[in-house]
Amino acid sequence: MQNILEVKNLSKKYKGFELKNVSFNLQKGMIMGLIGENGAGKTTTIKAILNIINSDDGNIKIFNLEMKENEKQIKEDIGVVLDDSFLSDYLNAIDINKVMKNIYQRWDENLYFKYIEEFKLPKDKIIKEYSSGMKMKLKITVALSHNPKLLILDEPTSGLDPIARNEILDILQEFIQDEEKAVLVSSHITSDLEHIADYITFISNGKIIFTKTRDELIDNYGIVKCSKEEFKKIKPKDFIKYKKNKYEYEILIENKNEFKKKYKIDVIDKATIEDIMIIYIKGEK
C-alpha cells in the first residue's frame, strides 16, 4: 500500500529536549495515533513535519514529494488542527470563510457551510464565545473544507467532554472512508485512539519506541501481575519491562498466548495502550 507520509530520521535539538531520529510511515486509508506523555515530542514532531520548525536533520516526504522543495503545493492538500493555536478569537464563522477562500486554491465554501450546519455551529458568534467543543469542531471544519488528502491533528480531543470526543472520532473515521486519505492524530488520551487508530506510534522522550497496528498491541500485549517469587522465574527475554508496585509486580509482555504456554501464572490481563505507555515510561528492565 502507498505511503502518504514518510518521516525519516527527523532530529531537532533544543535546550533540554531532543527529537532523535524519528521515523515512521503512514499509508493511504489509515489512521495513525501518535501517543506519548506530555513533552514527549508529539507537537515538535508535527511541527517539524509541517516545516513550521526547521529540523536539524531528517527528511519528510508527503504524497511522494519532498516537503522542503514542494511546501506550498503539499500544504494545499493538508488539513491541520493545532491544539492551542488558531486564526483569531475575534472572527466569526462567516469571517473565517472570507479569509480562507483566499488562502486555499481549492477552498470549498459550500462544503464549509455544510459542516457548519452539520455541527450546529453559530455563524455570527465570535469564536471567543464558543465552547471548547465548538471551537474544536470549527477548527476541524476549517481543516476539512479544502478537501485535503492528509489530516494532521494535534491533541484534538484534549479538554473535550466524552460526547464531543466521540463526535470528533466519527469525523475522522468518516474522513478515511474513501481510501485515498489518511489521518495522523496525536493524543495523550489513549482510549480515544485505542478503538479507531489503525497504527499506534509511541514516542517518548523524543524517541520513537514503536509503530504497531492496534490489533498487535491490544490482542497480543498483556500485563502479567505476580509476586516477587514468580517474577524471579521469568526470563528477561520473555518480557519487555516491569514495574514494581507495593503489592505486586506488573510485567509488560509482548505475546499473551506464548507467555501462557511457558509460564504458569494466573493473572494475565489485556494491556490497554495506557498500560503499555505507563510501563514503558515508568518501568525498568
Partner: peptide, 18 residues
C-alpha cells in the same frame, strides 16, 4: 497582539503561506 492571543503565526504556517 491579536496574533499573540491565538498564536496564529503557528497556525498560519500550516497553510500554503510562506
Amino acid at each position: 497582539n491579536y496574533d499573540n492571543i491565538t498564536k496564529s503565526d503557528r497556525y498560519i504556517l500550516t497553510f500554503p503561506v510562506s
